[in-house]
Design a protein around this nucleic acid. Structure first.
Length: 563
RNA sequence: CGAGGUGUAGCGCAGUUGGCUAGCGCGCCUGCUUUGGGAGCAGGAUGUCGGGGGUUCGAGUCCCUUCACCUCGACCA
């Protein structure tokens, strides 16, 4: 690009309302611009970086044997009703009607459409396996977009789908995609962890996430480096404690006026939180249910949903809490509840616990398991840092990650819903076994910047730098300099580099600063050295400046770029 | 959805108890000087003060309303 003519600008100051380094730097570098909450313009330089990321992903997809196509974003609503996901996505789906009043949605993900498309091509076991992918815009009406490109409402996703005969075939397809993902992220030089994750709204058998390690990441990763254990906090298994050997006493009510929170009550009783049980009232698929966790623990809603076997779980509104506990919010307890009660393993190990009294200003002490009826017990809490589980093999610690990729073994869920079957060699009709695999290229871009910036400038990994070579003409009034710069520009373009010519009539300092901000990988300075037949080369990653003869510049640049 | 906050020039901001032509820095335009790390001097342009309504002789400022955006929360009863 030639700056005197191209669409290019930078901002000198930090941008208001950009709460992440990547959002701020990409905006200042003139690569992106926010239009609305979670909606961004992708400007030429940002688009260039995106295209490089896309190209890497595309190459790895093709290498893994996947075939590219493109689905619509505008989709009749009944496609998602058929799979039962219209409800699962709920308000996070952008919904609209056409002029005839027919309901449409903007697709948040495309398992259904791919299943529908595959129906045309898959009839026999001879048609399998098959792998398809696309780069396509998704729409999700996030409750709270934030962190620049990291949580947005409109974004391009690379999504791929595998179709296999059986679970064994799925394992192969999954592994091929998994390896492709690793190669792609390695080429982008992203520092990431792979964690087991919740299958969530996708459903299915297994989910693993590729998480770019980064302090502003929204996911908490539970890890143990020695054993290689890594799991999303949502699903990280907790240790199962030994039952208490304390002798069980008889429950008795104790007045606790105004003591509602665990903190209140621990102070009131002068006991540690481990002696208390939190009774959380939820709506599980619309019906109230109680979940018990120890006072010092936090519930994992993902695990709780699995234990309760429900698809939707949200905190019950105060009216419901008051109805089922017959007490104001803050005094719920298991004794006398007439709704299903699910208990965490740690509660199963407790004795003489303190619970709410289901009565205003009342708690009950010395409660034991025999004093109430439990529907089911299981691991429904979040693990704490420092705990050890059989899986982790040692104490876990937490890190934060940005989810840049996710792989799912879906199984037969969508095939069954969308009627995707094949005939096997014994003339039996069988559901196709599917997998789905997503990468957020925009999140990759953001994660790369988060991981590679300092002093208000971006340091791009080699493979994704939008500008490989920036030619800075120090003085555009100096004809000799301009001629040399133009010659090099032409030569670098011929060589196929991503090259930028800063021929703006600006002072050298402005140009140098701008090239630093946008993270030009290699800078060629065409200035006073031209009089002696020389130009200067400088890598963004180093402070060293190398003088070379103009005639030698193309060869040396090629060498530095590794072309 | 709950709570809080912010909307004033392209960007970042100030604007007193309501007061007369609405300011500052950067950027932009013109000229001169300068010219290797965000130049200097002089001159200049640019505003539905988020929108609508109201109070008032007079509103960026007060009131009502609405929209947008941001932060925290929306699991701990």
């Amino acid at each position: 690009m030639r700056l005197s003519r191209d669409f290019f600008y930078t901002l000198r100051e930090d941008v208001r309302d950009e709460d992440s380094a990547s959002g701020n730097l990409l905006t200042r570098a003139g690569m992106i611009r926010r239009m609305a909450a979670g909606v961004y313009m992708m400007l030429p330089l940002g688009l260039k970086a995106m295209e490089k990321i896309d190209a890497i992903i595309r190459e790895e997809m093709v290498r893994a044997g996947s075939v590219e196509l493109r689905m619509p974003a505008l989709i009749p609503e009944d496609v998602y009703i058929a799979s039962g996901r219209r409800e699962a996505f709920g308000a996070s789906m952008f919904a609209l009607k056409d002029r005839g009043g027919r309901p449409f949605v903007l697709g948040p993900t495309h398992e259904e459409l791919f299943a529908v498309a595959a129906r045309q091509a898959i009839h026999s076991y001879k048609d399998l396996p098959l792998s398809l992918f696309q780069f396509q815009t998704k729409y999700r009406d996030e409750p709270r977009p934030r962190f620049g490109l990291i949580r947005v409402r409109e974004f391009v996703m690379k999504d791929a789908y595998s179709f296999d005969l059986d679970l064994e075939g799925l394992d192969h397809s999954y592994q091929a995609m998994f390896d492709a993902y690793k190669r792609a992220f390695d080429r982008m030089e992203i520092k990431y962890a792979i964690v087991t994750a919740d299958t969530g709204a996708m459903g299915g058998l297994l989910s693993e996430e590729f998480q770019a390690l980064c302090p502003i990441g929204e996911d908490i990763l539970v890890m143990n480096e020695e054993s290689g254990y890594a799991s999303n906090l949502e699903v990280a298994a907790c240790p199962k404690p030994e039952p208490s050997t304390e002798e069980h006493r008889t429950p008795r009510a104790v007045p606790t006026p105004g003591q509602k929170t665990i903190e209140d009550v621990t102070n009131f009783f002068g006991e540690t939180a481990e002696r208390f049980v939190k009774t959380l009232i939820y709506m599980a698929d619309g019906r109230p249910a109680a979940f018990l966790v120890r006072g010092d623990h936090e519930i994992s809603e993902v695990k709780a949903m699995k234990l309760a076997g429900c698809h939707e779980l949200e905190m019950a509104p105060p009216e419901v809490v008051e109805e089922v506990t017959r007490a104001p919010v803050g005094f719920a307890g298991p004794i006398g509840l007439e709704i299903p009660i699910y208990a965490d393993y740690s509660v199963m190990a407790m004795a003489n616990m303190i619970t709410g009294g289901n009565e205003a200003d009342m708690h009950i002490v010395d409660v034991n398991l025999e004093d109430f009826q439990i529907t089911a017990s299981g691991d429904i809490r979040q693990i704490h840092e420092g705990e050890t589980t059989p899986e982790s093999g040692g104490p876990v610690h937490f890190r934060r990650g940005i989810e840049i990729g996710n792989t799912f073994k879906l199984g037969e869920k969508y095939s069954m819903a969308m009627d995707l079957f094949y005939t096997d060699s014994d003339n039996q009709r069988r559901p196709v076994v599917m997998g789905s695999y997503g990468i957020g290229p925009g999140r990759c871009l953001a994660a790369i910047v988060e991981q590679n910036h300092a002093d208000g400038r971006i340091f791009w990994p080699r493979a994704v730098a939008p500008i490989e070579v920036a030619i800075v003409v120090v003085s555009t009034k100096n004809e000799a300099q301009v001629a040399v710069a133009e010659g090099l520009y032409e030569s670098f373009q011929q060589a196929g580099y991503d090259v930028l010519l800063d021929d703006r009539d600006e002072r050298a300092g402005i140009k140098f600063n701008d090239m630093d901000l946008i993270g030009a990988w290699l800078r060629v300075t065409v200035g006073r050295g031209v009089a002696e037949g020389k130009v200067e080369l400088k890598l963004a990653s180093s402070d060293d400046v190398e003088e070379v003869a103009i005639a030698d510049a193309p060869a040396r640049v090629a060498e530095l770029l590794g072309h």
